[in-house]
């Protein structure tokens, strides 16, 4: 649906200069025609370019983001993101249980919920420190060092949570 709707739009080249995507200029001629004929632009394209305009539908934008993520994100960062999603799910379940079934015993709720929150924070830190895109900012912290810190922090967190839940 989204792709067909894009075909009826006016000449996209008219608004192209305002587009922030700098990679679009790499294949200016292919843009109007490929969008009408092929539905999987990202898989066929050799670059990470997705042809978007200011009038692109939100689904197209989301799809483009997803494609770019799939393409550009390192394997380990993806693994971190999966783990982060898992932690959010577990934390949300515990919080919903607390709301539905009551907070007794409260220390157990605190321990269980804090385990997910704390682990999320530590993992997010690991993601920031090991992301190649942030290398400039963390030049003094190697990914190995970051991972060692992460393991140490996590073990400490688990120790405290298990103790706190009694």
């Amino acid at each position: 649906m989204a792709r067909k709707a894009r075909a009826t739009t006016p000449e996209p080249s008219a608004v192209r200069p305002s587009t922030p995507n700098t990679t679009v200029d790499a294949a200016p001629k292919a843009t109007p025609k490929t969008s009408t004929t092929t539905t999987t632009t990202s898989s066929s394209s050799s670059t990470s370019t997705v042809n978007l305009s200011a009038n692109s539908s939100p689904f197209a934008v989301a799809g483009a983001i997803w494609d770019k993520y799939q393409k550009d994100t390192p394997q380990r960062t993806k693994l971190i993101d999966v783990f982060l999603g898992f932690l959010v799910a577990v934390g949300a379940l515990q919080f919903i249980y607390c709301v539905v079934a009551g907070n007794y015993p409260f220390n157990a709720f605190l321990a269980g919920f804090a385990a997910t929150v704390g682990q999320f924070v530590l993992t997010a830190s690991l993601r920031i420190q090991t992301n190649p895109a942030n290398k400039a900012e963390f030049s003094s912290v190697s990914p190995e060092r970051a991972f060692a810190d992460f393991v140490f922090g996590s073990l400490t967190l688990h120790f405290f949570c298990v103790n706190f839940i009694n």
């Binding site: 380990r76 577990v90 379940l93």
Partner: peptide, 29 residues
């Protein structure tokens, strides 16, 4: 103890799921 109170079982499970998930994550990493 926490396991003596059935209401805290989901949260106990929550902690251990995080721990096991973390071990799995470290292994995959």
């Amino acid at each position: 103890r926490s396991w003596g109170i059935s209401g805290s079982w989901p949260w106990i499970a929550g902690i251990w799921v995080v721990v096991v998930g973390w071990i799995g994550f470290v292994g995959l990493w």
